[in-house]
Amino acid sequence: MSKLSPLNWPVVRQMQRGDLFGRDKSTQSSKSRDMHGRTVEADKVVQSVCPYCAVGCSQRVYVKDDRVVHIEGDPDSPVSRGRLCPKGAASEQLVNSATRLTKIKYRAPHATEWEELDVETAMDMIADRFIESRRNQWQDFDDEGRVLNRTMGVAGLGGATLDNEENYIIKKLFTAAGAVQVENQARI
Rank of each mutant, 00 (worst) to 15 (best):
Y168R: 09
D128E: 15
G159Q: 07
R38H: 08
Y106N: 07
S26M: 05
Y168L: 09
I188N: 10
E165V: 12
L162F: 10
S91Q: 07
V63T: 02
V55W: 08
D163V: 02
V79A: 03
G145D: 12
G153H: 02
A42L: 02
S133Q: 07
R146P: 01
I71G: 03
L4N: 12
A160N: 06
E116Q: 13
Q14G: 13
R33A: 14
A54M: 03
I131M: 09
L148H: 09
G145Y: 03
L148C: 15
R135W: 03
I71V: 15
A155L: 03
Q16Y: 11
T175R: 11
N96R: 13
G178R: 07
P6D: 05
L4V: 00
F141C: 01
V182F: 14
A54C: 09
A127T: 08
N96A: 04
R135L: 11
D143E: 15
A179S: 15
T102N: 12
V147N: 11
P75N: 08
Y52D: 02
R135V: 05
P78N: 11
A177Y: 09
V95Y: 13
I131A: 12
T121R: 14
K172V: 00
R17F: 10
D19A: 04
E165N: 05
T102M: 05
S133P: 03
W114F: 13
E144T: 13
E166Q: 10
R60C: 07
L173D: 01
R150T: 08
T102E: 14
V11G: 06
E165H: 11
I131Q: 00
L162E: 06
C57Q: 00
L157Q: 11
Q16P: 00
C53N: 10
E120K: 15
L7Y: 08
D34K: 08
E113L: 06
L94A: 10
R129K: 12
N184L: 03
T27F: 06
G159A: 13
W138T: 05
Q47S: 00
A111L: 00
T102L: 06
T99F: 13
A127C: 12
R23Y: 07
C57P: 02
T151V: 12
T161H: 12
P6W: 06
A108F: 02
E166K: 10
P51C: 03
Q137F: 04
M35A: 01
A98S: 15
K31T: 12
Q181E: 10
H70M: 05
V45F: 01
A98M: 14
A108L: 06
N8H: 07
M1S: 12
I104D: 06
N149Y: 03
I169N: 00
D140E: 09
E166T: 12
V69F: 00
R81K: 10
R187Y: 14
R23F: 08
V69Q: 01
Y106E: 05
S30R: 06
K103I: 04
V49D: 01
S2Y: 11
T102F: 01
K171Q: 14
D118E: 14
V12E: 07
F174N: 07
E132Q: 10
M152H: 10
A160M: 02
G153D: 05
L173M: 13
L162D: 01
D143Q: 12
D124A: 15
K171G: 00
V182Y: 13
L84P: 02
G18N: 11
A155V: 04
Q93F: 14
L7M: 06
G153L: 02
